[in-house]
Design a protein around this nucleic acid. Structure first.
Length: 295
DNA sequence: ATGACAGTCTGGGACTGA
């Protein structure tokens, strides 16, 4: 089974490249970010013709996430409990979408497509919004990894009583211990967790993506028991700015990641990025990140 | 080498991205 994540920077502009990418890599699931459209504007037919069902979460021309799957989709949910709002009028933006995939296991596999707020400037309200968003997401998905870390209370195992209204983590099948589905939190995290994840750490002095609060918010998931699946398996940037010849100079950033529940991480045999997708006219500024999962 | 980022909108410049 192959699962990819890709900030495609507009679904309508990128649809041909995205479909080709799904075919080239034989993807079963692709999580997309920055689709920049509403569901009615999303090029669903191209995915249907290619054998994929698509779930779309988009409110306007900003943000937006989607997940295409050629494996059966068992359930879908948008946003997560406690998600902070942004804008005037204040509303929860389209930055999180979950589908439960029938991957052949009794519990299924939850795949989350996530687009973490950018933060803009460190003294901008958007930066605080970013930190709040990450903290709220962490809390919402903590039931998946409850029991995998000493820091997590035992009573938080996924189940009816551990869920806020609208439940971020719907119960699996039976309510036995260990019936929690495996999960993947994939997407554009807009955080460079380590200095080597940017081409020049001095360039980022005083800028977002590399500050300690952002890095702590990202690493907190690992402290909860999540395992970042790509770093041990692939070394590369995942984003290069359109400006300043960043790609030809290989001045990029590693900001797209996949957090997996431990049991799922153990099944991942390899990970890679498709650097060629940054080349040529009509490229997104991000490249696809893909993992292979053994049955 | 005289360009210099790309996407969206009831657009002709502003906003967003990172």
């Amino acid at each position: 089974m192959r699962i990819g994540t890709w900030n495609i920077n507009s679904a309508r502009t990128r649809v041909d490249r995205v479909i080709e990418c799904c075919a080239r890599w034989n993807l079963d699931v692709l999580a997309m970010q920055e689709i920049k459209c509403k569901p009615g504007q999303f090029p669903i037919d191209a995915f249907t013709d290619a054998g994929y069902r698509v779930e779309v979460h988009g409110l306007n021309q900003w943000n937006g996430v989607a997940i295409a799957s050629r494996l059966p989709i068992l359930s879908v949910s948008r946003d997560f409990p406690g998600a902070p709002t942004w804008g005037d009028p204040a509303r929860v933006e389209a930055r999180a979408l979950r589908v439960r995939i029938d991957d052949g296991t009794p519990e299924g596999l939850d795949v989350w497509s996530l687009y973490v707020p950018n933060g803009r400037e460190i003294d901008h309200p958007h930066y605080q919004y970013k930190l709040q968003w990450l903290a709220a997401l962490r809390a919402a998905v903590s039931p998946y990894v409850a029991g995998d870390s000493s820091g997590v209370s035992k009573g938080d195992a996924p189940g009816e009583d551990s869920l806020a209204e609208g439940g971020a983590v719907p119960p699996a099948t039976a309510s036995d211990e260990g019936s929690s589905p495996s999960a993947l939190l994939v997407g554009d995290w807009n955080v460079a967790p380590r200095d080597e994840d940017v081409w020049d750490i001095d360039f980022f002095d005083g800028r977002t993506h590399v500050t300690q609060p952002e890095r702590s918010a990202f690493e907190a998931f690992a402290a909860d028991g999540w395992v970042e699946a790509t770093r041990p398996r692939v070394t590369n940037y995942t984003y290069w700015d359109y400006q300043q010849l960043r790609f030809p100079r290989n001045e990029g950033m590693r900001i797209d990641f996949m957090y997996a529940t431990p049991a799922l991480d153990a099944r991942i045999t390899q990970a890679w990025i498709d650097r060629d997708e940054r080349k040529g006219k009509g490229a997104s500024d991000h490249v696809p990140v893909i993992v292979e999962i053994a049955h």
